[in-house]
Design a protein around this nucleic acid. Structure first.
Lengths: 120, 120
DNA sequence: CTTTCATATGAGCATCTGTTCATATGTCCA
DNA sequence: TGGACATATGAACAGATGCTCATATGAAAG
């Protein structure tokens, strides 16, 4: 990238100009990185992590989740919307009740990998 | 949990008291969930995601990373500290220069899983 | 020892984020 | 149709977060 930070960088003969060149030409497109960070952001909140975890066990309605987490219905609903936008959960309506469940197995897999990292 | 939100919950004869009970007794300890969310938070920022990505390719020093990302040395250094605290990267010092690299393969695995999810 | 360079860090600030509160939407039942 | 209930949503506010700027630390060279 261009020289906005020249004054802060190591000398122009940066010892690793070759490495820099190589990496620069193998970076994935910007929006792929944005999407990745956006997805991880969903996992990066305790409330949302708890919600995903309780859905490991079974499909649940909003008020069930609120009761389990000891949180307001509103707070839970707001977070469910964020998780759903990331396509990590799906829902179905049965009368007045809306049931949420995990969208697929990726959630468990991703969390499982993270757990492995923590266990070391 | 206890009845701080009684007024907001569905009726006391919540239709899924059994499911609530079951889930409540199979929740992992609070701090495990906190740690998980904390770890994902590290992945949940574009700058940090970029840093991890450039380290996929090779070990790099701080000023290299700053140049690749077009960011200030300070900003990069602050983020490196956060990533290091999560034990996702390690560093070694060679004279004045500090080289950063991925700590292990979990980073790649976790990001790979997330990418799979996005590709659907 | 002093200078120079690479990196680290603390304070301050602007932005983002998660919760609450009030209220809207949607469904069932009388 | 009106009331009760489950859920969704917008506004507002408090706390968290990422950057910048200034400066500190640590290491090599003279």
């Amino acid at each position: 990238m261009i020289d906005q930070y020249d004054n802060e960088r190591c000398d122009s003969n940066c010892p690793h100009a070759d490495a820099v060149e190589r990496v620069l030409h193998h970076m994935p497109p910007e929006d792929e990185l944005l999407d990745l960070a956006e997805l991880f952001k969903v996992f990066g909140d305790t409330t949302r992590m708890k919600i995903l975890y309780v859905l490991f066990a079974s499909e649940l309605c909003v008020c069930d989740i609120a009761e389990i987490l000891g949180m307001s219905q509103s707070a839970v609903s707001h977070q469910l919307r964020i998780i759903k936008q990331a396509k990590l959960i799906k829902n179905r309506r049965d009368g007045k009740t809306v049931y949420y469940s995990l969208a697929d197995d990726h959630v468990k897999t991703i969390i499982g990998m993270a757990k492995e990292h923590l266990e070391e």
